[in-house]
Nucleic acid binder design. Structure first.
Lengths: 277, 277
DNA sequence: TAACTTCTGTAACAGTAGTTGCATAAGCGC
DNA sequence: GCGCTTATGCAACTACTGTTACAGAAGTTA
């Protein structure tokens, strides 16, 4: 369908609508767009017209069917919550007075809270436990920006347990690196929007070798999710040019803290050994 | 139905869910609540499971039918749109029992808030402006763990402006790298507790060459602070084995966002150029 | 490894939602 | 006021959606 919003179309066609069409329009706009997501009968009831009139109204708006109309509404809703990326610099509506940092950090807090709501404690705990067990090798990999998170994570985990390996960025050497992967090993992959195909590829290979994959990704889920045993989705949306990976960082630090705590008896020894060097 | 939100129910039942149930949950939470308003087949496709599994998932959540589940989602949406203030308000946390991730992320939010209180907006703004000006070279360096933050920062800034350089970890090559530092250049240094002597050393040298130093450090201030022109102190204290660098990460992302915004006219061109490769 | 349990997808089923033809009612011009 | 046009609701129809039984896969335990 063309790019116009449903509300826009109603506005355009307003004077061409029939009497019952206008009732339908008024009903929909009065409770937009939710009423349109209800079944026809309910929409009709709420607007005070017959179901058939709703269907005709929807047809007049240029939709081939009621489901198609609903799909458009859902897309619109999704769009509204996702897209201002293209808009460029600052998100609209925000006053650009002096308090940039305050606003940004406040939003960062919200992203953490949202993330918390989306990651089940049990999933987090299972990942931590698996890491703390120290069994098998543990591979790490990230994408363009998240690779630094992988590095940060690895630098800490190395102190806590053995068997850490990080896939470097060069595709050429990847085959070598995958060479002695064994069933029962685990891998921690980072992948956020503008998903890196390399991550999904590696995930597929690892899954085939029966490696347990932990995927740390954004709220829209990397395609690698289909291969993952554990998925930790973090909120990254900012409405700005760059998404924010602060929530991923938070989860990484939480994992570091939890794993350290769980394997304290062995971890503390290793930490002391590092000190002594 | 009882008053719990669908997301809340998922959260509660998570560890009782089957594997495909969890996939469904992830899919839904990742695109909440829109995916649930789609027909079963579409939901199933998006979540990567069969339609039947979606139906079972919905049943597990306590709904008598898929339509009833959809009705609940719509009601929720309506509810939310009626009181827009409710959600954005304060970063509310969970109770401080048992739930490790909840506690940790809640503390992370507090660290962000504390950091905000300690960094003057004017200082932040000055740094952003200086970076956005694009004049002179900009050097970056971090310590044992914070080096990854430097890397993350650099990877973004490279897209926005030219003249980025990162000091690598090897002391041997450092002298070379310092060779063509010029007065008026700037440097961004990261240094947190267990302060890295190398950072302080480099800071001293840079200061002597009249390079403007931005220091991103913790609340106890790295010794490099004496050489810095701008200091951004971040809260890192956790009371655990490891301090947390999440607040530094937050400030870095805020800087990235601010600088991108300030230099949007040139930055957007560079970003597009990168895309085209 | 084998037996058992649990989960998952396929495919047939049933019900309901959306659609449409038709008769009637409402509006409009003559 | 009469006849024509257009719009509306009812009710039958169709198609698709949600549901469920079943068989096989996956995972678990002994």
């Amino acid at each position: 369908m063309d790019g116009k919003s449903v509300a826009g179309r109603i506005h355009d066609l307003n004077d061409q609508l029939t009497a019952s069409g206008r009732k339908a329009a008024r009903g929909l706009l009065g409770n937009y767009p939710l009423l349109g997501l209800a079944p026809v009968a309910e929409f009709a009831e709420a607007a005070g017209v017959s179901a058939a009139s709703i269907v005709r109204f929807v047809a007049q708006l240029g939709f081939r069917s009621y489901p198609e109309f609903q799909r458009a509404l859902r897309d619109e809703l999704e769009q509204r919550s996702k897209s201002p990326l293209q808009r460029g610099a600052a998100p609209e509506g925000e006053p650009s007075d002096g308090a940039f940092l305050a606003r940004y950090l406040h939003q960062a807090q919200t992203r953490l809270a949202d993330t918390l709501r989306h990651i089940p404690e049990s999933e987090f705990e299972a990942v931590a436990m698996r890491l703390a067990s120290g069994k098998g090798a543990c591979y790490m990999m990230g994408g363009r920006f998240t690779d630094f998170l992988a590095g940060y994570f690895e630098a800490h985990m190395r102190v806590i347990r053995p068997g850490l390996r990080r896939f470097d960025g060069r595709p050429a050497t990847r085959a070598d690196q995958l060479l002695d992967v064994r069933a029962g090993d685990m891998a921690i992959l980072f992948d956020v929007r503008r998903y890196d195909p390399a991550v999904a590829d590696v995930a597929a290979v690892l899954a085939r070798h029966r490696v347990d994959i932990v995927l740390i990704t954004d709220e829209w889920l990397s395609p690698a999710a289909r291969h993952a045993r554990y998925v930790l989705p973090c909120h990254t949306q900012t409405g700005r040019a760059w998404d924010a990976n602060g929530a991923l960082f938070g989860v990484v630090e939480a994992l570091i803290a939890r794993v350290t705590e769980q394997s304290w008896s062995t971890a503390s020894k290793r930490m002391r050994a590092v000190e002594d060097l």
